[in-house]
């Protein structure tokens, strides 16, 4: 990803500066799928670079998720005999609430700075902006989970590093950022977007939450693929349906900014 933005040449201004008129501009027009994917990659790369410098989204999400796990751990430690009965709910609830923090910043920061207008002015398909943002959000949420999962392991002493739990978490995260990125774009220009986004998003995420919790619980109970495949199917179907829906409707969201 990081190679997508060109690095500057290592020369300095000892030679005469180039004139504007002596610099003809050549642009690929059209460009097809390759150009589309390059723009998706450039948008995701730009978000990741900006986050590496600012450390706003990832650090907030990580601290929040670990704090949430600690609070759930303290709350259930006194009353629950078998942590495996609460860990599925804790894992997926923390994932959902943590994700909202990052999704809010995804388009909100662009609207606040006005940079979204510059992006919309460029000859870029609106859906390329969506997929670029989706990739960046996916990266932030998966990176946060790399911290959250060990925290759950330590605090609840439950091994959630099991193949089908991790697969369901990946599928659920894809579905979450697919819908979440779409709704973040919808609510970006709304004055109360911080409260509007979870109100819009969380009800739509119920199928993912239910399927994810069910799969995690079944795997922790020692069940195999036969028992969880129906729920896995729900997650896969959810991801595919909302990817297509988002691709189709995203252009309509920003008819006006």
């Amino acid at each position: 990803m990081s190679v997508l933005l060109q690095t500057e040449p290592n020369n300095n201004a000892l030679v005469a500066p180039p004139s504007l008129e002596n610099q003809p501009v050549q642009m690929h027009t059209g460009g097809g799928v390759g150009a589309y994917l390059r723009k998706v990659g450039a948008i995701a790369d730009k978000d990741l670079r900006a986050e590496i410098r600012a450390k706003e989204v990832f650090s907030t999400m990580t601290v929040f998720s670990v704090l949430a796990v600690v609070i759930f751990g303290m709350a259930f430690d006194l009353r629950v005999a078998f942590p495996t009965s609460v860990v599925p709910g804790v894992l997926w609830a923390v994932m959902l609430f943590t994700g909202v923090l990052g999704l809010n910043r995804s388009f909100g920061a662009e609207v606040d700075r006005g940079s979204l207008a510059a992006l919309l002015l460029a000859p870029v398909d609106r859906s390329a902006i969506y997929f670029g943002k989706l990739l960046a959000n996916l990266f932030f949420l998966l990176a946060t989970q790399c911290i959250t999962l060990p925290a759950i392991l330590v605090i609840f002493n439950v091994n959630i590093f099991q193949t089908w739990i991790l697969v369901s978490l990946l599928l659920g995260t894809v579905g979450y950022v697919t819908v979440g990125t779409l709704f973040a774009a919808l609510s970006a220009s709304v004055r109360a977007r911080e409260s509007m986004l979870p109100i819009l998003l969380l009800p739509v995420m119920l199928p993912v939450f239910m399927a994810g919790t069910k799969i995690t619980g079944l795997v922790l109970d020692g069940k195999g693929l036969n028992d969880i495949q129906r729920w896995l199917g729900i997650l896969i179907a959810y991801d595919l349906i909302f990817l297509v829906v988002a691709f189709l409707v995203f252009d309509l969201i920003w008819e006006e900014l």
Binding site: L5, Q6, Q23, M27
Partner: peptide, 20 residues
């Protein structure tokens, strides 16, 4: 500028970025 050069599909944008 390098980011926006990519958005506009500019070929070898470095000399132009330097000029502007």
């Amino acid at each position: 500028l390098a980011f926006f050069a990519r958005m506009y599909d500019m070929q070898t944008p470095e000399p132009r970025i330097e000029a502007v």
